[in-house]
Design a protein around this nucleic acid. Structure first.
Lengths: 259, 259
DNA sequence: TGGTCCAGATGGACTAGACAATTGAGACTG
DNA sequence: CAGTCTCAATTGTCTAGTCCATCTGGACCA
């Protein structure tokens, strides 16, 4: 790992490799502080700017964070489990909370959310998934979900306007039984869904809404729900910061595989 | 988007915001060239280094690439579809290719792969998933899959040594019927699997094996297969560059959701 | 014609140094 | 004792400039 970096590699890459190795070997563990820029500069015989370039690599790789004026620290990461499959499980008779909230409480943490409902024009991505034309009016129900007060993921649900007009989906209140259920009550029960997951760096809006630091990629999960006759009735866009989630699902073999 | 950046933001952020907006608005499209560093420096009244900081943001965000000595170019991205679910579908009677290869050919492209089999000691992540102790010997069957000669994803399958010793899994040859099938023939048919997907920045080894550029996050898909009695028999680690894949699966509601 | 070589354009790495911004800890004050 | 102020340490931003690495295209030559 460090070997390929040693020879004629630029100084900033050698610096990055040095501390990357220390982190991966466990010599530096999450929460540990790295030497100051000045110390590293002296140790490698370079100027501060070169050190900053090297540490910048580790920052964009998500391995460390800079906390002015305290120094650089090895980043910690704990993954909360995200289960796209469980969305479709029927819940107990009197659900007081949606699936997400229930899971958080089970883990002994405090969930909350900020909801904002607005009427927007569909962009190309949503229009295509909802079977509309770009520019058509849709209802966006945007949520930031927080755990212990910290933003954890985004869940923006989108509905064709004519399906949910004047329904409680358009109120920015928490719907304990979930929008799937409300949609079913409105006569649009969902029958199947297509999940698409993209991996990319977040855009500035996502960075802002989720308070993301540099070096944090996101998984973007498009969950498009269809009625039995194949009509799309909702498209949820979930944005999951990579440092806070792992996505889990299970598969069962349809028939026994025999030789 | 640009608004919040304008006022007192640092120059390098204003530069980044300027070209980010041009890309998102379609004013600059994939393949287009940005002005040279010197041009941008003159336009914003800053020195070249400040321009480099600004463009560096866009590079780590995966929006542009630098091609010396040609300039900066807006990055292109096309996603190939990755379907973790289809792995479990039984294939036609005489499969000449595995699922991955079949899909590529269907799309009119040329698949190939580099296979390397080795005996390694399980790290903590694999040991836990395979129900072994860290350091236990396992067989690693590492593949780099290429499309039209370009590395596209990594598929490293791992097996407990005692299960596959002396079997054809240990030969670094292409197994058209897939390792699942071979494992079944060895008396270990898989019954279900757990999929875990992590999102993070790649490490140097992954960057090297996949020829990744900066600003490309990866999805890491752990696919752990179990026999009917719940014993793990294989753990595959798939590394998918975010700029080349989208992950797709479908869900069906178990029962009709009624109000 | 066809190959070789070289100059110029452009990004990559680095030095040297200045000043600003942030924030915890410790000193101070009422 | 509780609140407030100040300061030092540290990272953040930017300037000004040097030299290097890489590739294209045109000039030149066999």
């Amino acid at each position: 790992m460090a070997a390929e970096q040693r020879a004629g590699a630029p100084a900033y890459q050698r610096i990055a490799a040095t501390y990357r190795d220390q982190i991966r070997s466990g010599e530096l563990t999450p929460g540990d502080r790295l030497p100051t820029e000045a110390d590293i500069a002296a140790r490698f015989g370079v100027v501060r700017q070169t050190v900053r370039n090297g540490l910048g690599v580790l920052i964009t790789d998500g391995l460390i964070v800079a906390r002015r004026p305290h120094g650089y620290f090895v980043r910690d990461r704990e993954h909360m489990v995200y289960r796209p499959q469980q969305k479709s499980r029927p819940r107990p008779a009197t659900p007081a909370m949606d699936r997400f909230s229930q899971q958080i409480v089970d883990e002994g943490r405090t969930p909350s959310q900020l909801i904002q409902v607005s009427l927007i024009q569909a962009g190309p991505d949503l229009a295509q998934r909802l079977g509309l034309d770009p520019g058509d009016a849709i209802v966006a129900r945007r949520r930031v979900r927080l755990i212990n007060g910290e933003p954890t993921n985004l869940n923006d649900s989108h509905f064709p306007l004519d399906l949910v007009k004047d329904s409680e989906i358009m109120s920015p209140a928490y719907l304990p039984r979930g929008t799937d259920q409300v949609l079913a009550e409105l006569g649009h029960p969902q029958h199947h869904a297509i999940d698409e997951i993209f991996v990319r760096m977040p855009n500035p809006e996502e960075i802002h809404r989720l308070s993301l630091g540099p070096g944090t990629p996101v998984a973007v999960h498009y969950d498009t729900g269809y009625t039995a006759d194949g009509r799309p009735v909702q498209c949820a866009v979930n944005v999951l910061p990579g440092d806070r989630h792992k996505i889990v699902f299970e598969r069962h073999w349809p028939t026994t595989v025999t030789a």
